[in-house]
Design a protein around this nucleic acid. Structure first.
Lengths: 243, 243
DNA sequence: GATCGAGGATTTATCTGACAACAGGCTTGC
DNA sequence: GCAAGCCTGTTGTCAGATAAATCCTCGATC
């Protein structure tokens, strides 16, 4: 005899996504109660612990709030969609694309150098180790919108510096050498372009810049890249959630 | 007969914290394997599903990475501590305090007004509803470091506008009226102070400002507050994690 | 001796079923 | 009318079992 069409095995990750979709389509408003664990089990399948893990993730996201003995409820964050939060790690190239920009890349300089003390510390370099210093300007429609100063651990790139194509996304270039970073520690501040940069590259009209300075790490731990990106103030704004 | 000193009931939240502490004290480096579920159960108590829920949270935090059949491993984020990430919701007053600033509060203006269209939309106001407009300057050691423009839903405050003490943290003031916001949707950009503000309050030397513009929501859903904070560019920088 | 495969050990992933704790409404007894 | 107690629904935790992935060992085979 055929056994019941046994509830398919369902993973936490999949459930997480399905619940998000379900909530999005449900038209629930903040403060409304969401389906109970039992209902979700009915509708989506999976065992209770698995469903609970998925719900716990939503709770940590700030999308729902659990009340012991009562139920789970949608919070304000549940109805807010942040399109491309700055807290998601992605390359400036990608970021710009989603701003509707189609950047042209000008390489101002590439060289192998002895790093300054703060860079050496951020990249966890031993004495004497060098970095690749990359200075680029990104134009949108002939207008400079982004000045980037990158320092890359020399040992992340196995080729000669001048053999590498630096005109694309830096993250993807690193990925090709098996050194893709997956997260970063970042700081944001507002300032002008450094005087010497503005003078050397005719950027005196760049105006106030939104600077994102970040150290990017590989999944396995070690830092790979230190990036300073000056975003033209009147062209960029970044979104995020605080909770 | 006495039953065995039954393993105490242990909650997910508690386990989450204990594991974080355990990892912090363990001296593990990124890429190292962390104790298995079985070991954690041994050392911290709790049932396996509970432990797994706590570990799942750490995984979502980006602190650890699970590999089926191998174990769990510390990631780079596990060893990075961001002191006060901008992604944590707190009042500017608190934020400044942790910068080492002891702000003096100057109220430039308080009034009840008909909001502009964008504010009305952000605060989800019906036609005709009004807001409290609050304009403040924060000084550190006689130097202006922060210009704040707040719009508060009129129905969040049950007193007369001039009876309220606006000199403290706005979040706490709202809390006193039972309208404490708990999260916000924020945007950051770089610009100068608006011309009229700079002119009216003698702030022409403020320089480039880091602007955080946010709409803050109550736990139950509705927006309460729209805030625009101009942070003096050479005094402020905010940290966060990207992953 | 080297190589490949089977099998076992370890670890994470999921499932099943149960009990505990809390909230809220209902009944019942006074 | 009111309060204590009970019942039900919900989330929180527990215990043990099975599934799936990875890695190591050991033995057979060439």
């Amino acid at each position: 005899m055929e056994p019941e069409p046994k509830a398919r095995r369902v993973g936490t990750k999949q459930l997480h996504e399905e619940i998000v979709r379900l909530l999005a389509e449900s038209g629930l408003k903040p403060g409304d109660q969401i389906p109970t664990e039992a209902e979700l089990k009915e509708r989506l399948g999976g065992a209770r612990p698995t469903i609970r893990e998925a719900l716990k993730l939503l709770e940590q996201d700030g999308v729902i709030r659990a009340e012991h003995g009562r139920g789970r409820f949608l919070t304000a964050a549940g109805s807010i969609r942040i399109d491309r939060p700055i807290t998601t790690f992605e390359s400036v190239t990608e970021m710009a694309r989603h701003f509707g920009y189609n950047l042209v890349n000008k390489i101002l300089s590439v060289s192998e150098e002895r790093p300054a003390a703060d860079i050496a510390k951020a990249l966890n370099l031993a004495k004497g180790e060098t970095v690749i210093r990359l200075e680029r300007l990104r134009l949108n429609d002939r207008e400079p919108v982004l000045y980037c100063l990158d320092h890359i651990r020399r040992d992340a790139i196995s080729d000669r510096v001048f053999d590498v194509d630096w005109s694309g996304s830096l993250i993807e270039t690193l990925a090709r050498y098996g050194a893709r970073p997956s997260m970063s520690q970042a700081r944001v501040r507002a300032t002008f372009l450094p005087d010497d940069v503005a003078a050397r590259h005719d950027l005196r009209d760049f105006g106030p810049a939104l600077v994102i300075e970040e150290t990017a790490y590989r999944d396995s731990g070690p830092p790979v890249l230190h990036a300073i990106d000056y975003h033209r103030g009147d062209r960029y704004a970044f979104s995020f959630l605080r909770k």
